[in-house]
């Protein structure tokens, strides 16, 4: 029997190596893994930079309650303009009540909606006073529920045009283009 130099021991009969092995997982994979702080901070900073770059306020226009917008592929980015919402029979301009579509639905004929007309005309006058000497863009965004009938759509469209907003945009959910023509 060879003579060994005594190693470090925990107890008389237990070698320190045995305890170290047990703590390290007893030959099995360790439960706790080490985390490199440098890599983690790099990762977090990269995420922050990516999110800041992709952060955009455009298109952040909230849809009115109970308005289910249709989807379209060939669309443009949203612009800042007065929003006319039609949900059920109520008409809202920038969230404020602006009449209803009852008369149009009952007559089933295209007609001017006077309350909407007056509110839009007022908005145009305010814009002109705030931007003297500038050309009025005349853009209005219509936020219309998918089941609203064409007679209401056309009435609101024409009313907006007569009130000085001939460039009418229809708000939709943007869909990615697909070769088959079905939006996703």
């Amino acid at each position: 029997m060879t003579i060994h130099e005594p190693g470090r021991r925990l107890m008389h009969s237990v070698q320190l190596k045995y305890v170290q092995k047990k703590v390290a997982g007893g030959g099995q994979r360790q439960v706790a893994a080490g985390l490199s702080l440098t890599s983690m901070i790099d990762f977090l900073v990269t995420i922050v930079v990516f999110l800041l770059i992709t952060f955009s306020a455009s298109g952040e226009i909230p849809a009115a309650k109970n308005v289910r917008l249709p989807t379209a592929e060939n669309t443009m980015d949203m612009i800042d303009a007065p929003i006319v919402s039609i949900a059920g029979q109520a008409i809202l301009v920038d969230g404020a009540p602006a009449g209803n579509t009852r008369a149009v639905e009952e007559s089933k004929r295209m007609q001017r909606i006077d309350e909407l007309f007056n509110i839009l005309k007022g908005k145009r006058e305010v814009w002109r006073q705030l931007h003297p000497g500038k050309d009025f863009p005349g853009v209005v965004v219509l936020q219309i529920d998918q089941d609203v009938t064409a007679v209401v759509v056309k009435s609101v469209f024409q009313t907006s045009a007569f009130a000085g907003f001939p460039n009418v945009s229809f708000m939709v959910n943007g869909a990615s283009k697909t070769p088959g023509g079905t939006a996703q």
Partner: peptide
């Protein structure tokens, strides 16, 4: 605060 569903628009001209 990220916007996941982007709104878009389809334009029409009233020919006034």
């Amino acid at each position: 605060t990220a916007v996941w569903s982007h709104m878009s628009r389809i334009n029409a001209d009233a020919q006034v």
